[in-house]
Design a protein around this nucleic acid. Structure first.
Length: 580
RNA sequence: UGGGGAGUCGUCUAAUGGUAGGACAGCAGACUCUGGAUCUGUACGUGAGAGUUCGAUUCUUUCCUCCCCAGCCA
């Protein structure tokens, strides 16, 4: 990897950061490296510009990692700027959540926190300047008329009758707009560009509209609000952004971005670069749809662990490291793409495997009585906390006559390759003893209620000194010491890889009715009493878990972040499938 | 049917005129007190055609497919 980057004497090592192996390049880095090499810029300034009208999701994480990551890698800076120009949809709650999420992801905007609304005065002045240059005018067309005049994709537009009104008239009208003399929608300020442009964005786009709405930051100071296209480029320029990175759908807006800045002759003229937004299988990235899921209670809030939101992933147990690594390995390009959800799961498993403390928890308990184990005796078994990390140490786990094992770990009639417990079969209890199933106890309906097993005292710790081998190792919890708790198992929120793929065109038809399963009582080893909200656990042989924020000391609630790779489940599924 | 983009293993993504590589997913095996992890092996791709060239994913050209744009949203 390092041998290919020996650029033949490119000659500006000062500004060309060493790509440490493992850092993946992309076309944006190529552009930046070139800009630095040629001296176009000495350092870079990027920005992450969310609109505070919803919670951040994993797609935003890609953008955050890109923008902040670029700044970090090239020794520049990245601004956090709220693009708050539409008070009808925005809210202070979102501003707070966005800051929390960006910070949690591990990024720091330092003192560079901005709001487009901070620029309202300047934006107004720039708009006036545009009018004075005869590059903008106040238009009285109604919404409907405006649409007619705009033309279509294949037909050019018509010029507004107000297009050539005198500058002074527009100036006066615009001031009166600002002063609140007109009701919503009555007048707009438009850029005077070209109604015949094949690019619809250039057909005299609206710059300002009237909205008698209280803004979450500026209150009632303004009743006119600038539109995105005007606001964004000006904000970028004011902040001396060097590279304005946005998603593909704004490609068509770039000529407009450049038109404004050229007309206004701003000192700084950032370069807009577009990349493909993230799509993930089995989930949605549309803010509108995520909002609908929240508002119509298909999920339990923005931080529902099934949501692809940062707050949902956090609650689910994902780590910032896992998400950052994910954003790194998926790459950045310009073609629309949909990343396999398995890639995200891979990242969280990889991270948690290194960090998570191993514990034992039984999700679907089956009672086992060790018939030859002394009544009342409690033994302490030594258990490794993390085989991947020696420094994590060991702990003691109590073992006694009555324990719980996993229902799935016993089969009265074991199928081929089932290595777990069955009548007459011997298995190992992790960290404890070999046990052998001697009897299956059932109720009057034939349901298994408990197992009677015997243990071999000579196998303490889980080893046999006679070379005898067992095929399976089970996790378990001592019944007398177990803590009952609730465990929430999550599955995909949607049943289809592309949730938008539905007959009626309604993604909600693809909602997975089994996306949440609540298990109770589950039993976990006693040490888990001390679990904290930031702890991550691997329930041995099951998956990674964390405490849910609804958990209380009286009733522990765990979320399953992700299951372990389960090759038995895979095998079993395959065996069940009819041979073709 | 105007304009703007994009087409590389199943999925992401490299290679910019010189061996099509990596990751995830898949398959097979080794190892293992987690059927985890780890390790090994394996299969799978340049949208199609024509041209330039010793040589094309890369350059030219024709075609095909997909995405975005007709908010007083961003």
């Amino acid at each position: 990897m390092s041998n290919s980057s020996s650029t033949a004497g490119a000659g500006a090592p000062l500004t060309t950061p060493e790509s440490p192996s493992g850092v993946i390049s992309n076309f944006i880095k190529d552009i930046i490296s070139e800009d630095l090499r040629t001296g176009k810029h000495n350092s870079i300034v990027t920005r992450f510009p969310p609109e505070p009208n919803g919670y951040l999701h994993i797609g935003h994480a890609k953008s955050i990692c890109l923008n902040f990551g670029l700044a970090k890698e090239y020794g520049g800076r990245c601004h956090l700027r709220f693009d708050d120009t539409n008070p009808c949809k925005e809210d202070i709650e979102y501003i707070e959540s966005i800051q929390r999420d960006v910070r949690w992801l591990g990024f720091d905007w330092q003192q560079f926190l901005y709001y487009a609304s901070d620029y309202y005065d300047k934006l107004y002045e720039y708009a006036v300047a545009l009018i004075k240059m005869d590059k903008a005018y106040v238009c009285e067309l109604t919404n409907e008329q405006m649409r007619e005049y705009r033309g279509t994709l294949t037909e050019t537009g018509k010029e507004s009758p107000h297009r050539n009104r005198p500058v002074v008239e527009s100036l006066e009208l615009f001031e009166r707009m600002k002063n609140g003399e007109f009701e919503d929608g009555k007048l707009v300020l438009r850029a005077k560009i070209d109604m015949n442009s094949p690019n619809i964005n250039m057909r005299d786009p609206i710059i300002y509209r009237i909205r008698h709405t209280t803004h979450h930051r500026t209150g009632d100071k303004w009743c006119i609000y600038p539109m995105y296209d005007f606001t964004h480029c000006v904000s970028d320029a004011l902040e001396t952004i060097t590279h304005s990175i946005c998603t593909l759908e704004f490609e068509d807006h770039r000529p407009l971005y450049d038109w404004f800045l050229k007309a206004l002759q701003t000192e700084c003229h950032p370069r807009q670069i577009e990349f493909a937004r993230l799509n993930l299988t089995y989930t949605l990235m549309s803010k509108r749809k995520l909002l609908e899921l929240v508002e119509k209670k298909y999920v339990n809030g923005w931080d529902d662990p099934r949501m692809p939101t940062i707050s949902g992933l956090r609650r689910r147990g994902y780590t910032p490291e896992a998400i950052r690594n994910f954003c790194e390995i998926i790459g950045v390009a310009k073609s629309n793409s949909t990343v396999d959800f398995a890639m995200l799961e891979y990242c969280v498993r990889e991270d948690l495997n290194k960090k998570a403390m191993r514990v034992m928890g039984v999700l679907k308990p089956l009672k086992v009585v060790i018939t030859n184990f002394p009544d009342g005796l409690v033994e302490e078994c030594d258990a490794q906390n993390n085989p991947e990390d020696e420094s994590a140490g060991t702990r003691k786990v109590p073992f006694s006559k009555v324990i719980y094992i996993e229902c799935d770990d016993f089969r009265e009639e074991p199928p081929n390759k089932f290595f777990r417990l069955a009548p007459g079969r011997e298995v190992r209890l992790k960290h404890a003893y070999y046990i052998k199933c001697e009897a299956v106890i059932k109720d009057e309906n034939g349901n298994i209620t408990e197992l009677h097993c015997t243990y071999d005292p000579a196998t303490k710790g889980g080893w046999s000194n006679d070379g005898r081998k067992v095929q399976g190792t089970l996790h378990w919890v001592s019944a007398a010491h177990a803590i009952p708790c609730e465990v929430r198992i999550y599955d995909q929120l949607f049943t289809k890889a592309n949730p938008d793929d539905s007959a009626g065109g309604d993604y909600k038809q693809n909602l997975n009715p089994d996306s949440l399963s609540v298990l109770y009582p589950c039993f976990v080893e006693p040490g888990l009493k001390m679990a904290g909200l930031n702890d991550r656990f691997q329930f041995l042989r099951q998956g990674y878990f964390c405490l849910d924020n609804e958990s209380t000391p009286e009733k522990l609630v765990f979320n399953r972040t992700v299951s372990l790779v389960d090759s038995w489940a895979k095998l079993e599924k395959k065996m069940q499938q009819p041979k073709k």
